[in-house]
C-alpha cells in the first residue's frame, strides 16, 4: 500500500509554478528521500501533503484515503522548515503540548519513553531556547512520535546539525522506521546521509518529479563506470566507440570520456596510445547518490 500518493499536484505562487503535475508514490514502511535543488518545490509539496498549503490542482491520498481524512491526519508527524517549539518551555512541556494537541493517552509515561528514545531525558526544566540545534531537532522528532504516527514528514531535519547531531538523527530515524514501521518522507540536502537511510527516492526539478527510484534500482543504475581523462575527449570517444561498439554507453565531458559498465582500463589505454592519445588519468568510479542526483538534474541518468 502507498502511504502517500499524489496525482498531478500543482501549486503556483503569483503565477509562478512551484509544483507542476507532481506524481509521488511513497510506499508504506519506506524511508523516502525527497531530493531537489533549493526552490525545486520540496517544501511546497510537503506542505500540501500536510494540508498547510492548498493545491491549485491535483489530489493527495494518504493510505488510500483522502488527504483531508481526520483519522489519517492525526497519524502524521511533521517537521516543516524548523522545529516547532515553545522557546520558554522545557522539553517535557513541549512534548506535553503536542501530546494534548494529539489527545494522547498515558501522556506522562509516553513522553518519558520518547524523551529517552531521542536522548533528552536528562534536560529537566531547561528551556528549549537554550538547547543546541541538534537537541531542538531531536525534540521536534520526539514530538512527531507522540500519538503513534504512521507517517513522518520531515523537511530538512539535518540542516545546521554538526556531524554528531546528524548521526544521532540518522540513528533515531532508522530505529523508528525499523522498530515501529513508520513511513518517513524526508527531504535533505545532505545526500550522503540520505543515501545511508533512504529506501526510495524522488527527484524533483523545477516543481516536476523527474524520477522515482528505489534503493536497489538506484544501486543498479549507479554501477561502475570508467573515467578516461584526455586532452581531446571527442577524438577519444570516436576511437572507443569504434572499438567497443555503438551500444556501449559513453558520455563525453569537457576533459573526459566516461564509459559505463566497463572495466578494462588496459585495453582502453592501449587503444588510445596506439592512436597517439595519452590519457592523464584512467580511473574506475562508482556513482553515489550525489553524482546520480547531479546526473539526473542534467538528464543523464538513463544512460
Amino acid at each position: 500500500m502507498l502511504a502517500i500518493r499524489t496525482q498531478k499536484l500543482s501549486r503556483s505562487f503569483k503565477g509562478k509554478p512551484a509544483v507542476s503535475n507532481l506524481n509521488m508514490h511513497v510506499p508504506e514502511g519506506s524511508i523516502y528521500g525527497f531530493i531537489g535543488q533549493n526552490g525545486a518545490g520540496k517544501s511546497t509539496t510537503q506542505k500540501m501533503i500536510c494540508g498547510l498549503l492548498h493545491p491549485d490542482e491535483g489530489n493527495i491520498s494518504l493510505y488510500g484515503k483522502s488527504g483531508d481524512d481526520s483519522e489519517i491526519r492525526s497519524k502524521i508527524g511533521v517537521i516543516i522548515e524548523s522545529p516547532a517549539l515553545f522557546p520558554n518551555a522545557s522539553a517535557y512541556e513541549n512534548m506535553m503540548m503536542q501530546a494534548l494537541n494529539l489527545g494522547v493517552d498515558n501522556t506522562e509515561e509516553k513522553i518519558k519513553e520518547i524523551l529517552k528514545l531521542v536522548g533528552l531525558s536528562d534536560t529537566d526544566k531547561k528551556k528549549s531556547k537554550l538547547f543546541s540545534l541538534g537537541m531542538k531537532q531531536r525534540l521536534a522528532i520526539g514530538q512527531t512520535l507522540l500519538g503513534d504516527p504512521k507517517l513522518l514528514i520531515l523537511d530538512e531535519p539535518m540542516n545546521g546539525l554538526d556531524p554528531q547531531g546528524i548521526i544521532e538523527i540518522r540513528n533515531t530515524l532508522q530505529k523508528i522506521n525499523k522498530e515501529q514501521g513508520i513511513t518517513i518522507l524526508i527531504s535533505s540536502h545532505i545526500l550522503g546521509e540520505l543515501s545511508r537511510i533512504a529506501t526510495h527516492y524522488g527527484i524533483i526539478k523545477q516543481g516536476e518529479m523527474i524520477e522515482e527510484i528505489n534503493k536497489d534500482a538506484l544501486r543498479e543504475k549507479c554501477k561502475e563506470y570508467m573515467t578516461v581523462r584526455v586532452s581531446n575527449p571527442h577524438m577519444a570517444e570516436g576511437l572507443i566507440r569504434t572499438a567497443l561498439g555503438a551500444n556501449q554507453p559513453i558520455e563525453v565531458t569537457e576533459d573526459a570520456v566516461h564509459i559505463h559498465h566497463y572495466q578494462d582500463g588496459e585495453k582502453i589505454n592501449r587503444l588510445l596510445v596506439g592512436s597517439g592519445i595519452y590519457a592523464s588519468e584512467i580511473k574506475q568510479h562508482k556513482m553515489d547518490l550525489e553524482e546520480y542526483f547531479l546526473a539526473a538534474m542534467e538528464g543523464r541518468t538513463h544512460a
Binding site: 500536510c50 494540508g51 498547510l52 483531508d68 481524512d69 481526520s70 491526519r73 492525526s74 502524521i76 511533521v78 516543516i80 522548515e81 524548523s82 522545529p83 516547532a84 517549539l85 515553545f86 522557546p87 503540548m97 503536542q98 494537541n101 494529539l102 514530538q143 500519538g147 514528514i153
Partner: peptide, 18 residues
C-alpha cells in the same frame, strides 16, 4: 501569534484537518 511564530500551528493544522 505564538502558534504562528513558533511554527506550532503546523503541528496543529496537520493533525486537525478541520
Amino acid at each position: 501569534g505564538k502558534d504562528f511564530s513558533t511554527g506550532f500551528i503546523k503541528n496543529i493544522l496537520t493533525i486537525h484537518a478541520n
